[in-house]
Design a binder for these strands. Sequence first.
RNA 1: GCCACCAUAGCUCAGCUGGUAGAGCAGACGAUUCGUAAUCGUCAGGUCGUCGGGUCGUAGCCGACUGGUGGCUCCA
Length: 602
Amino acid sequence: MAQQTERYEDTQLYKVRHSAAHVMAQAVLELFPDGKVTIGPPVENGFYYDFDLPRNLTPEDLQQIEKRMRQIVQGKHEFKKTVISADEARKIFADQPYKLELIEGLEQGGLDEYGNPLDGPPDISIYQHDTFTDLCRGPHVATTKEIKQDAFKLMNVAGAYWRGDEKNKMLQRIYGTAWESKKELEDYLHQLEEAKKRDHRKLGRELEIFIFDDEVGPGLPLWLPNGTVMVDELEALAKEMETNAGYSRVKTPHLTKEDLFIRSGHLPYYAESMYPPMELEGVKYYVKPMNCPMHHKIFSSKGRSYRDLPVRLAEYGTCYRYEKSGELFGLMRVRSMQMNDAHIYCSEEQFEQEFMGVIDLYKKYFDLFGIDKYVMRLSLHGKAGLGKKYVDNERLWVKTEDMVRRAMDNGGVPYVEVIDEAAFYGPKIDVQIWSAIGKEFTLATNQVDFAVPERFDLKFTNREGVDEIPLCIHRAPLSTHERMVGFLLEHYAGNFPVWISPEQVRVISITDAQNDYVEQLAKELRGNGIRASADVSAQRMNAKIRQAQLMKVPYMLVVGDNEMQAGQVSLRVRDGSQQNNIPLAEFVARVKDKIARRAGEL
RNA sequence: GCCACCAUAGCUCAGCUGGUAGAGCAGACGAUUCGUAAUCGUCAGGUCGUCGGGUCGUAGCCGACUGGUGGCUCCA
């Protein structure tokens, strides 16, 4: 996890970026005197500024703006802060409607520049430099000279809704990156190039993991044989871990009648993520966006006693969600997905233990994969969404959120809290990770459901012989196959541990004389449960090795006359290291051991 | 879904301001039999994403659609 040294807001870099945003706004207004400015904060790696302009910006505009910025920056203009009254501010920004809206929010003490609530009315201040004045709380650098003219770059133009609300007007956002020195800028740009190389969409094609096909449809991945091996390995891992943790496995259909999703609350609260219904003989059917309603049916299929609890039902179920077209992103965001799903039905007393049991499961998985850059996020309901995004029972929301918070605190698990991010049926702990190109995703999730069990009349008989409604924990520590494999591709840059590598060993003959022998070796390896193939193509050994390296095969066995005669193999490991003339049995033992332990090292 | 950009052979890409397609890799075939990241040669492969418009004529201009990319919104 990231350790905080100095708050970003207090750093020179933050001021440089914030100030660069102002300089950019000046340059844009010079180009569009009637343009309207909104907000322009620093962000990770840079800054942006949102504008409402009379026409769309072109890449040429961007170049021109950047060029003008370099001139302005060299002018050594001072950044001057002035605290003013709301009325004065309204005069200054009389022709800037977005600023007037911001002033309104500040004056009433209600809202900051993003529309988030504030504690009380803050000072209203402006910053001026050269010809540009912005409503701004700062801080900024002393003069524009501190923005190095060779240490920033405008990256791209993007659409962005005013105040992040899709009902509002779409503005034009210019993203820029800014650093304290040219070297830092160059390093950052280089880092972006490197990140692209491990983009799972690129690696997925190169390593033949998955494809998308226009005729099949967007967001509907086809798993190639190599990808299917990975999926199968993940599933085997999950089964093993879940069996040990006391789960039972179930299987449920991909389709159900409308009635089930009305009862579950999916149609009232979740319909816009669902595929539209298909109707036959007057009955509507939906493909499932989640497995829970069917698991609830399995729970209620017989009478349950407190002695049976907790009941843990697991299924790698395939779900379908209608993600909006612009939201799709390789394997990380798809429309058909196999979830590492399970539902745990338990009593309130059992809740903490079960909840933490799931967190433990996460940790085991994360250890196994060496995942250490993530944040656990406790997602809470938002008051405004009650009855719309969230089931309408604030008392239970607060109660359940407290239970989760207490469990996490007691377990000593660090997390951050976020308002208005919960599932419709309850709060959740999400594990946030980042893709190679910096997009944030929820990998694993652990959700508490205090609402739906009641809608399904779920009950168990407690010690007193009285019916009680169980709590339900929805959890997906391995996420979905799609997102997990996408993540692992980037996490390992395609250099997978042996156990999950699609091809574990490639046996390479040096000349045709060894072809029969290497085929036989590969067969023997397969007999030992190792995924191996023989390369008996007419290419030279060097070319065969190169191809195996490009496919990131962990072990290459090179076999010439020497090895054939001695009944040995020469091992080339993916990292380039070599070990000549080792007995086959020794190599087999080594590989079997790595696989059995799911070892990270080769 | 919204804003912008992009779409040429299986893959990666070239094709100047419109005169009707080209390379490397992959593939097939042939030669080569080689010691740790590319042996050589030959051949084959594209109604230039789709549909419509403009033009004497376009892969290159205009429009719509489809798909992708960068964001926004949303999410496992």
